[in-house]
Design a protein around this nucleic acid. Structure first.
Lengths: 226, 226, 226, 226
DNA sequence: GATGAATGAGGCTTCATTCAT
DNA sequence: GATGAATGAAGCCTCATTCAT
């Protein structure tokens, strides 16, 4: 995925290594100070390299932003499948997926904020790439929803719309964390705000299924994974 | 509220007039190009004044951002009470308020995006002011919720949390409009995603109340107001 | 002619004044150090203005070069007509024009060098403009030649080619001055190398005409004019 | 001659081989883009070597320019003696030499331009070397002139001055080629502008001599040599 | 000897802000 | 009060040169 950004240095291993220095530094600083107030030199310094080196691995300061946002999305995306490993029951899979998603967002609140704030500064092309990556990630959840519907556990709803509802609520925890943390906890937020959304759409049969799985140490497993 | 920003010029009327030139120009440009890529000169030009004049009515470029964001919130805030005028039934008031809110957000999608993107660039103090303004606006909705609960129409829930759920969904329509517009309409979004959230929390008595008011030309009234 | 270069400042008088500070400074430095080794800051300093100011009167560093070269050509071009004022005899006019040209080139040897050296650094468009200005200047001489031919004083020759021969010899005095000054004087150079070229092309009638005018204090007059 | 530029590598053969890779690459690029806009990396790439290697055979980027200009002059200088081989008549030798010179300049118009444009970027020392090389080359022509004078074929003139006149006209063909090619051909240029200069200085005896040699297929021979 | 990654000085340019008019 | 020219700090980026491998 990072191939989208050209670097002067050819050796892919070195590119990967250097970028794995640069990108976290960039993420940290972009989160802290924003894209425009972060200097390329700042990033170089934080990555313990010279300013000139940056431009051997990235064409632009904008590319650095793209790599940063891309990295975040990519990383987040990997967490959910991990949490679903071995889970087969459709309702439990959905429950697990969305909970994992929410907890990943919580663990990377800075990154969520960054995404909402700085996407504007991307190239049109980069913006498109990022959007399609978002859609891909969403698919991890929407496919769980579809499975539930197909199995008759959930009413027939606009799947992507529901997905966005859940996704956006997870983001909201990060976006409004400055206030939400004073009025609730993550656990409550997830169960009250997020889970209830899809639980209300379960069929009677789905509710039954759901009730059974609640015995399992769901939450703990996901927490550990994150 | 705008008194928070000092200007060299004393005459409050003139200050108001000049700022009413500057702020809309600033909003337009900040929305289009973002805060950092918008030049003070750009704003001056758009407001048909000289660059120097800006600094007689504003201390800083940041102040301009503050005034812009402040203006947006203020404006939005005024819309909701208007829509509630004459509505007395608690359930209908809640329904009306949230619908008005959602439609205002839709009408000012740019502004919503701007708020999420550029708040970071504010002073610590200004950020606090803006947050408290957000809370005030939310109170317009949360007080409706409280009325419903008090009247026994709604279960006892974490009022502010529910408010945020509704508010954030309205924002999400703007934030994710690039995708949502392809998978639903505003009307469907409001009824399916937003209204259902609180409707699911109504007591049986509340549901009854709600069912009755559905006969009224609710949506139309709010639409007109916006 | 300077209208070709856009400036942010509108007032044409101010533009003219500032540019008349900047351009000579640029010429001096470009001549001394070359275009690339001259810093915009150097020019600003030499012109006693701030670095930022330069960009209010010029879009580019390249524009500065264009204005510099343009200014040189323009200035040179004005000298020749002045020297011809009142001279009517075709042969004498030609003689006077070419001598004036040569002396102007001598007086601006640096500028001639600059033109040959740095034209390459111009935009394609600017290069074209400069070329056409060169052709215009040449026309001052070629029209004198044409008059001589028309009057039967000179053989029918390729007028522009002869013009270039004369022009290039004048430039050569500047281009090879490092050596020529050791082996001749400007006066000898002009009479031996330059004048002889067209004198050899005179018709008998032309030679007669020419011989008569040699009584006149030609050289002195042109010298004074330059 | 290239010994003037020190290299880290000792083996002179290797130095020669590497430089014969580097210098043509440098010439090509310097001609095309100019000295300053050509990157050392560009040259290395064009010469199919690494950037670092350049600095083992050259101290400086400036050295590369020196070697390039030096190479050009050296190469050109070798052409003239070749064309004179077997020609003994003084007038014909002069005629042949200058024609050869002009045609070499035509064949290397880029190089001529380069020399005029970028000599400025050389070290003081390098500039001197180049100048003395130019004088050496000129001597190839001036000695022909001297022979003609000594033989009574040509008037007693300032030999070096005449040489420069001829040389500069040959350069002018390259320098003003953008225009001259529209108004004449190389052949006409040589005969009309260049040859006529010295032909006009022949003594009657010289003219006779010259007329005789005109039967010979002069031009063709020189053309072939170039 | 050869490579090419790394360095870091320095250039061009932008733009928030000031200030004389 | 209004103007807009002037300032100068600071940022992005390039590229000659070095040096570890």
């Amino acid at each position: 995925m990072q191939i989208r950004v050209k670097s002067i240095v050819e050796d892919p291993e070195l590119v990967a290594r250097r970028r794995s220095q640069l990108v976290p530094a960039a993420i940290k600083l972009f989160c802290r100070r924003g894209f425009h107030r972060t200097t390329v030199k700042d990033i170089a310094r934080a990555a313990r390299v010279s300013a000139g080196l940056v431009y051997q691995y990235v064409h632009d300061k904008h590319d650095l932003l793209f790599l940063a946002l891309t990295h975040i999305v990519e990383t987040n995306k990997q967490e959910i499948p991990a949490s679903l490993k071995g889970v087969t029951d459709p309702v439990l899979r959905l429950s697990t997926a969305i909970e994992a998603y929410a907890r990943v967002m919580d663990a990377n609140r800075d990154a969520v904020l960054l995404t909402y704030r700085e996407s504007k500064s991307l190239t049109r092309d980069h913006k498109e790439v990022l959007k399609s990556m978002e859609l891909e990630t969403n698919k991890l959840i929407s496919s769980c929803i579809e499975d539930c519907i197909r199995a008759g556990y959930m009413k027939k709803v606009n799947v992507e719309l529901l997905t966005y509802h859940l996704v956006v609520l997870s983001h909201a925890w990060a976006l409004k964390h400055w206030r939400l943390r004073h009025i609730t906890t993550l656990d409550e937020y997830i169960s009250t705000n997020i889970h209830s959304v899809w639980e209300n759409l379960l069929t009677p049969k789905g509710r039954q299924r759901h009730a059974q799985s609640l015995g399992a140490p769901l939450r703990e497993r996901v927490k550990a994974a994150v």
